[in-house]
């Protein structure tokens, strides 16, 4: 049995949905969220955030501090606050953050990884050139083209490239260790899966003439010929 995580992170409408258990002290709240995100890899940045803070009561100053810290470290914007406390919801209103008592019915005990790999896939029908960056936190990304050096892709699920992958990719960006990266020609500068990182060896690796898959095995990323699951 996995221990109950006091902070849960999952993908929600291409942003993050972070649930903080009432056992987390308010002074530590922002720090704990940041370190939780750090364990997922620093790629999740600039995402809209729905923050669920349970029954705790926060005043506007406390909330402002949390907002500031999340913004400074991860560029996260709180777009909605879910709180069972009237006081907290009025504090949110002062800061012009939308606040609701419940967002939807969910169970906090659910491991985040399962929710992260939702059965959605977005398709990008062109080559991603240097400087391009796509983040999809509700499932997988399929690219019908190349991912050039200097482009980056982040998905909560799998990343599949029907072309040459030379850029930087992060699959399972919300902690899903079962996520995979597949490319017809796998020459990625860097591959991240959940909290693991693999860099391309010094000097360009020769492309294999067959598709390859990167996945996590025994706590590290391995790359091998892709022959179906």
């Amino acid at each position: 049995m996995r221990q109950k995580e006091p902070i849960l992170v999952r993908g929600y409408r291409n942003g993050l949905y972070v649930t903080v258990d009432d056992s987390v002290p308010t002074e530590e709240l922002a720090d704990r969220i940041v370190s939780r995100l750090a364990r997922l890899g620093s790629f999740v940045k600039g995402a809209p955030l729905v923050l669920e803070v349970g029954q705790r009561s926060l005043n506007d100053e406390e909330l402002r501090q949390i907002q500031k810290q999340l913004d400074r470290q991860y560029g996260l914007r709180i777009v909605q606050l879910v709180s069972g406390s009237d006081a907290t919801r009025s504090a949110a209103e002062i800061l012009r953050i939308r606040a609701v008592p419940t967002l939807f019915d969910h169970r906090v005990e659910e491991p985040p990884a399962l929710r992260a790999r939702e059965p959605n896939t977005i398709t990008i029908r062109h080559t991603l050139r240097a400087g391009a960056s796509e983040q999809f936190l509700q499932g997988s990304i399929l690219v019908l083209g190349d991912v050039n050096p200097g482009a980056e892709l982040v998905a909560s699920g799998d990343i599949i490239v029907l072309g040459t992958l030379r850029g930087v990719v992060h699959a399972g960006a919300l902690g899903d260790e079962g996520a995979v990266v597949i490319a017809l020609r796998l020459l990625a500068t860097q591959i991240r899966i959940a909290g693991h990182i693999a860099r391309s060896p010094e000097g360009e690796r020769e492309a294999r003439p067959y598709p390859e898959i990167a996945l996590v095995e025994k706590e590290q990323i391995v790359v091998r010929r892709f022959e179906g699951f």
Partner: peptide, 10 residues
């Protein structure tokens, strides 16, 4: 090449 690629995208 990296910068050219970026510019081509733009």
């Amino acid at each position: 090449i990296r910068d050219a690629d970026r510019v081509i995208g733009l």
